[in-house]
Computed example of a mutant assay.
Amino acid sequence: MSEAPDLAALLRSWRGRLQPTDVGLPFGPGTRRTAGLRREEVAWLAGVSPDYLQRLEQGRAHPSLVIVRALARTLRLSDAEYELACRLAGHAAESGTTVPQHIGPSVRRLLDRLAGTPIAVFDAAWTLIEHNELWAALTGDDWRGHDRRSANIVWRTFRDDEGRVRHPRIEEHRASLVADLRTVATRYPADREVGDLIGALRKSSPDFARLWADSTVAHHRSERKTVDHPDVGEIEVDCDVLTAHGADVRIVVYTAAPGSEAAEKLRLLSVVGTETMTPPTG
């Protein structure tokens, strides 16, 4: 009998150790008989069908790396568990070769506990990989259902698609993004997606090509930004970019001074979420 770990069994075990409150689901321990999360709950959180997750847990399906990442985020896997899941699924672990997109449990807890603050996690190349609901309500950005490039801030910025956020020093902002991408390309030379992104931007954006050729060096700093929300109007927020020790990710946090008009608008958005506040006609 083989003693080698089995991905299907591990997925069932990892699902069983989580409680609904661990992932923000509104169910208490006395409202269900299932130990851990239900299969339907994990499927919904990971963006896959319950039937597909069942086949994975029965060893009848082979998950792509994208699916492994989504399940790792949902199941709150540690770095070691994520690397094990990658190996068992037949994928090389990302560390040291490509830009990591795994979020560890500590960063996940940060997202869960700061539900009243717009917060998002980007990888080192500025691709959005996770956010809380208030971030989506404020910015309109949602990583779910987007490919890696269209969820990338550098790509969108130099394609004139910056969404609702206005930057006070746009040229400095663009220069810092290019400098970040240059550093990432040096750190992860084997990441083909990063190389393809740089090549596509150099061809399609004269501004990016100019900044790339100039070898511009710039740094991010805390600053105030304006978000043009379609329902509540302008919201001035302070933007801070944080890092997590041992994880090559960027955590972007928007805050407003207590008692300010912006704080009240954020409170309103935290209540209504992504629903439209336009009154019905007729």
Rank of each mutant, 00 (worst) to 15 (best):
residue 110 L to E: 02
residue 82 Y to H: 15
residue 114 L to A: 09
residue 91 H to T: 13
residue 86 C to D: 04
residue 119 I to S: 04
residue 100 P to F: 02
residue 73 R to Y: 02
residue 83 E to S: 15
residue 109 R to S: 03
residue 96 G to W: 02
residue 71 L to I: 01
residue 113 R to Y: 00
residue 107 V to L: 05
residue 82 Y to K: 05
residue 75 L to F: 00
residue 87 R to L: 14
residue 84 L to K: 01
residue 89 A to V: 10
residue 124 A to D: 12
residue 88 L to W: 01
residue 109 R to C: 00
residue 99 V to E: 12
residue 108 R to D: 13
residue 75 L to E: 06
residue 96 G to A: 11
residue 128 L to C: 08
residue 93 A to K: 07
residue 108 R to E: 14
residue 90 G to C: 09
residue 97 T to H: 15
residue 129 I to H: 14
residue 92 A to Y: 04
residue 112 D to L: 14
residue 95 S to N: 05
residue 107 V to T: 14
residue 119 I to F: 07
residue 104 G to H: 13
residue 90 G to V: 08
residue 128 L to D: 11
residue 111 L to M: 12
residue 111 L to A: 03
residue 71 L to A: 02
residue 85 A to K: 13
residue 98 T to R: 15
residue 74 T to N: 02
residue 77 L to Y: 08
residue 130 E to Y: 02
residue 107 V to M: 06
residue 118 P to N: 10
residue 83 E to W: 01
residue 120 A to I: 12
residue 93 A to G: 15
residue 127 T to C: 10
residue 92 A to E: 11
residue 86 C to E: 01
residue 75 L to P: 03
residue 105 P to K: 02
residue 97 T to C: 06
residue 125 A to D: 09
residue 98 T to H: 08
residue 111 L to W: 10
residue 83 E to K: 08
residue 103 I to K: 06
residue 73 R to A: 07
residue 92 A to C: 03
residue 91 H to C: 03
residue 91 H to E: 08
residue 89 A to M: 08
residue 131 H to F: 03
residue 82 Y to W: 03
residue 131 H to N: 14
residue 106 S to I: 13
residue 106 S to M: 08
residue 74 T to G: 02
residue 80 A to C: 06
residue 79 D to E: 12
residue 83 E to R: 14
residue 122 F to Q: 11
residue 115 A to F: 14
residue 119 I to V: 15
residue 124 A to F: 07
residue 78 S to H: 08
residue 107 V to A: 09
residue 73 R to V: 03
residue 112 D to P: 08
residue 119 I to E: 11
residue 75 L to Y: 07
residue 86 C to T: 14
residue 107 V to F: 02
residue 90 G to I: 01
residue 87 R to C: 09
